[in-house]
Amino acid sequence: TLFEALYDYEARTEDDLSFHKGEKFQILNSSEGDWWEVRSLTTGETGYIPSPYLAPV
């Protein structure tokens, strides 16, 4: 399942991933609570992002 960003987000740590509203992601790991490890389909980068900022496509 692909997810889309509902809002912009600016990374706060080196493990976070900055992204823009509308960017699409592949979920790599969603078992860590509200922070999911994802791969951006736009940039190819991986990192953690807050799951409340995402919605299924």
Results as ranks from 00 to 15, higher is better:
1 T>N: 11
1 T>V: 13
1 T>F: 11
2 L>T: 09
2 L>W: 10
2 L>S: 05
2 L>G: 02
3 F>M: 08
3 F>R: 03
4 E>G: 02
5 A>F: 01
5 A>H: 00
5 A>T: 05
5 A>N: 01
6 L>R: 06
6 L>M: 09
6 L>W: 06
7 Y>S: 09
7 Y>H: 09
7 Y>L: 10
8 D>Y: 03
8 D>V: 01
8 D>W: 04
9 Y>F: 09
10 E>F: 10
10 E>H: 11
11 A>M: 04
11 A>H: 06
13 T>R: 14
14 E>R: 11
14 E>A: 13
15 D>H: 15
15 D>R: 15
15 D>P: 06
16 D>T: 14
17 L>Q: 03
17 L>I: 12
17 L>M: 14
18 S>F: 04
18 S>V: 04
21 K>Y: 05
21 K>L: 05
21 K>M: 07
21 K>A: 10
21 K>T: 07
22 G>P: 00
23 E>Y: 04
24 K>T: 09
24 K>A: 06
24 K>S: 05
26 Q>T: 10
26 Q>I: 15
27 I>T: 03
28 L>D: 00
28 L>N: 01
28 L>W: 02
28 L>K: 02
28 L>T: 04
29 N>T: 08
29 N>P: 02
30 S>T: 12
30 S>Y: 12
31 S>A: 11
31 S>G: 11
32 E>G: 14
32 E>C: 13
33 G>N: 12
34 D>E: 12
34 D>V: 11
34 D>H: 10
34 D>R: 07
34 D>Y: 15
35 W>R: 15
37 E>S: 06
37 E>N: 08
37 E>M: 14
38 V>S: 01
38 V>T: 01
39 R>C: 07
39 R>T: 07
40 S>H: 07
40 S>F: 03
41 L>G: 01
42 T>W: 12
44 G>V: 00
45 E>N: 12
45 E>Y: 09
46 T>Y: 07
46 T>D: 03
47 G>R: 03
47 G>L: 05
48 Y>E: 02
48 Y>N: 06
48 Y>D: 01
49 I>M: 04
49 I>G: 04
49 I>D: 00
49 I>A: 14
50 P>V: 03
50 P>E: 09
51 S>C: 12
51 S>W: 15
51 S>A: 14
52 P>V: 15
56 P>N: 06
56 P>E: 11
57 V>A: 08
57 V>C: 08
